[in-house]
């Protein structure tokens, strides 16, 4: 008898993570997205082990080799570099871009959002006004401006993308903190003598993470797209980095005679972004039904 009761308790009380996973498993699109993300992450981690060639090694005799020829599965580019190896290494760069820039927006967005909702008053008014001004700039334009001020490089592109996304995260976090801050459990903690920082980041924040996680997942895909755009304009990664956007930019004159050099990196971007969008949409449906439009 005793064991039966014990088992029932376990079934009745799954952790939030288990519960999310339970719902997520039933969402086919989200699982496809997760699968794509996993493949790209594995590619990024094991790039040196799985890529058949050095991504920057130029074989002059093998320039613009078509796909499935002479041992090059995806052909070579205009300098005779193996496309497959460059695409695999590109996964490394794009995943880094996603994590770093979303990390920047998350840290600052959470700091700004939590404090302005928690303290309110004049501070909140000023911060929200600044956020409004930042949102008055079209997002792509803001990244381009920041990057052109900092100087073109991959790191600066990540910083620029991170900064220009802060307003969105700050707003999402602020809205959910506002909804939580008068809740009974917060008041109870306060009555027990918790300090402001404890209340903000240990008591309230963990209960506000769902919409932020959704935003961050979709944000990774958007960051990959934006950085590809910046690199295409010459404001992001610099040659010979195997960044997907840069690969498209530097081969655009070959669309007349070597279509795969332009097409393949675009497909890589498309798939990676698709993965994060599928997974993010699925997460949104489960974690935050209110956000569905």
């Amino acid at each position: 008898m005793e064991t039966d009761i014990h088992e029932e308790i376990i079934i009745a009380d799954p952790t939030p993570l288990q519960e999310t996973w339970f719902h997520l498993k039933k969402n086919k699109a989200a699982m496809v997205g997760l699968g794509i993300i996993t493949i790209f992450v594995l590619m990024a981690i094991f790039a040196p082990l799985i890529s058949p060639y050095d991504p920057n090694a130029q074989v002059i005799d093998d320039r613009k080799t078509p796909m499935f020829t002479d041992g090059y599965i995806l052909g070579t580019d205009d300098l005779g570099r193996d496309m497959l190896s460059r695409l695999i290494y590109g996964a490394r760069i794009s995943m880094t871009i996603g994590v770093v820039s979303v990390g920047i927006s998350l840290v600052f967005g959470i700091l700004i959002g939590v404090t302005s909702a928690y303290f309110g008053g004049v501070y909140d008014k000023i911060v929200m006004r600044l956020i409004d001004i930042m949102l008055a700039f079209p997002y792509i334009l803001l990244t381009i401006v920041i990057v052109s001020l900092l100087g073109p490089s991959l790191l600066n592109a990540m910083i620029a993308i991170g900064i220009s996304q802060i307003p969105r995260y700050a707003r999402v976090v602020r809205a959910s903190v506002l909804a939580e801050k008068e809740a009974d459990y917060v008041l109870a903690e306060r009555a027990l003598g918790a300090r402001d920082t404890e209340l903000m980041f240990l008591t309230i924040l963990p209960n506000c993470l769902s919409p932020t996680i959704v935003q961050a997942t979709l944000g990774v895909g958007e960051a990959i797209l934006s950085s590809a755009g910046l690199s295409f304009l010459g404001l992001g990664a610099q040659p010979p980095t195997p960044e997907w956007g840069l690969m498209i930019a530097s081969s655009k004159e070959f669309i007349t005679n070597a279509w795969w050099i332009v097409t393949l990196p675009g497909i890589a971007i498309l798939l990676a972004v698709l993965g994060f969008n599928l997974f993010g949409d699925g997460l949104r449906d489960i974690l935050d039904p209110k956000m569905r439009n």
Partner: peptide, 22 residues
């Protein structure tokens, strides 16, 4: 639609040029 929002605009432009112009 999901493919549409996941695509880099400049790449789509180049692919369109490749197919319809070249």
């Amino acid at each position: 639609a999901l493919f549409g929002v996941s695509m880099p605009v400049f790449w789509l432009g180049l692919v369109l040029i490749m197919i319809f112009s070249v």
